[in-house]
Amino acid sequence: MALSPLNARRWRNFKSNRRAFWSLWIFAVLFGLSLFAEVIANDKPLLVSYRGELHMPFLRFYPETAFGGDFQTEAAYRDPEVKCLIISGGSQACWDDPEGVIEQVQATGTVDGEKVEKGWILWPLIPFSYNTINDLETAAPSAPDSTHWLGTDDTARDVLARVIFGFRLSVAFALIVTVTTSIIGVAAGAVQGYFGGLVDLTFQRLIELWGATPNLYIIIIVAAIIPMNFWLLVALSTIFGWTALVGVVRAEFLRARNFEYVRAAKALGVRDRVIMFRHVLPNAMVATLTMLPFIVTGAIGSLAALDFLGFGLPSSSPSLGELTMQAKQNLQAPWLAFTAFFTFAIMLSLLVFIFEGVRDAFDPRKTFA
């Protein structure tokens, strides 16, 4: 699909901003990888070959009985007996000496002289999920090593796995909140600025009252009454965050509604809705895009702050704010603080650079060489 001349010029301007362009690529790669977090970091295998059949435990539930075990509960794939059952094709000798049977099968393909159909397990790059409680030889939190590349937190969960899932959660939360608040805020600001008069006056008084509401305290009160979850937090953030764009959009519409092309469109009988969103809104996009970096980073910061205070998502969620809180409580484990700091610094810097480039690309006064 070919771009229009205007959008092609904007894309050229964006690419000319090298910092924004490379930030977009880096962020796209990082976020794209985080979308497949279950494939990268999981305590369940990606593929299991058992008696010639392939299974995908990270997508489906398999009871232990599916691999020759005794229980109907989900197979504990990290358990030595379950590993032995898979590799040996369900040999009952696994219950007595799982490590010995595994070595025997891998060396000779037999168990006690009887040939078995050898199976195998394909693990993710990081064989831990964000909520996996690991058996450590030292006290938690443990320092980074060859098994846990960024160490573990104070509940023996792998920090790198939590960062991958937490990055995805934070960015998804920020983007959803930004889109919803922008739609509501742009629509409200457009109506205020275009119609003016009593409509503008009424909206302004309501926004002043709404803006004076202590939203953080209300979210904390709601969290104390109702168990908080992702979508409830998105809804609350949208309810209190939609006013961020109203002011700039309103000002642009107040300025543009008396322009000659707007008066000409009205004289020709063009509907107000068409004039507002097809003709006036594009001229207000630069001011609108200027505010987007603050909304995105503010949403990430709000989520982290609520999780840090313990009023955000449940503690079992892969939260970067909860990781920051653990860094504060475990000063003897500096890898937690360094991980939280660099994760936030990289994520927020990339987003700000990207939106700066988008803002400049939409600005008709700026043309890059």
Rank of each mutant, 00 (worst) to 15 (best):
L233E: 00
D145R: 10
A8Q: 15
D96N: 13
V358M: 06
A340H: 09
P127D: 11
L59W: 02
A28G: 13
A8K: 13
G197D: 06
I354R: 11
A244N: 11
I220T: 06
A287E: 10
Y77L: 11
H279K: 09
S88T: 08
I218R: 04
P293N: 10
D97K: 12
Y130F: 11
G69D: 06
F362R: 04
G312C: 08
N283F: 01
G109K: 14
P214V: 03
I184N: 12
F311R: 04
A140V: 05
D272Y: 02
F344T: 01
E137I: 00
R278G: 12
E260P: 00
F368I: 03
S237H: 08
M1S: 11
A299Y: 11
V111K: 03
V274M: 05
G241Y: 07
V249S: 06
L233A: 00
G69W: 10
T110G: 11
V171D: 06
E252G: 15
R359L: 08
M285A: 12
S34E: 12
W11G: 09
G211F: 08
N330T: 02
T73F: 07
A304P: 08
L351D: 02
V186C: 15
N229K: 10
Y77Q: 07
V186D: 04
Q326A: 14
G193E: 09
W120N: 07
T110Q: 14
G321C: 07
P63F: 01
F308G: 14
G321V: 00
G113C: 13
R168C: 09
D272M: 01
I354V: 09
T132D: 15
T181E: 12
K44E: 01
V246Y: 00
V179H: 07
L236V: 04
F36S: 15
P63A: 03
C94I: 08
W335N: 09
A327D: 05
L169R: 01
T243S: 05
S16I: 02
F31R: 00
K44M: 08
I207G: 02
E252I: 04
F253H: 01
E322S: 11
K115T: 08
E117C: 12
G113F: 09
A107I: 05
L236P: 03
D112M: 04
G211N: 11
P45L: 01
A337T: 03
S142I: 09
F353P: 00
S88L: 05
V246H: 02
A76T: 13
W210M: 07
F338C: 06
P227A: 12
T108A: 13
I184V: 15
A93Q: 13
